[in-house]
Amino acid sequence: MAGLKNVLLVEDEPMIRDLYRIALADSGYTVEVADNADEAFTKLGKFQPDCIFLDVMLPGTSGLEILTELRSNPAHGCMDAKIVILTNLAQRSVADNAMEHGADGYVIKADIFPRDLPKVIKSLEEE
């Protein structure tokens, strides 16, 4: 699959959200952001992302619950979208669990440079 253009970024920490949005937008991606589950589902009603960056630790509905919903409910239109989990737990068991529920990979926020996010999307296109 080539040409992952539309990116949805679900992250409740505004500074990180801005940082990642800027990094992705600078690289030419169309980025929509949400800071919780409700906002994310609202955005999905009018925006069809090719790739979703999904924070695990969210107020209210967690990132994993959103992931499960997105992968099990075709109404959201995200059955084929690439989903990358954002985490700072660095617990691989959490990440593995997410991947079992349909995630395509995970990013440890403290370890990644924001400028590397486009490279992440690129690596997902290589299949």
């Binding site: 995630a103 995970y106 990013v107 990644i112 440079f113 590397d116 490279k119 690596s123 997902l124």
Partner: peptide, 12 residues
């Protein structure tokens, strides 16, 4: 080899 620090892609 495909090392992006902090990124772990699901194995195909």
């Amino acid at each position: 080899s495909g090392g992006i620090h902090g990124w772990f892609k699901k194995r195909t």
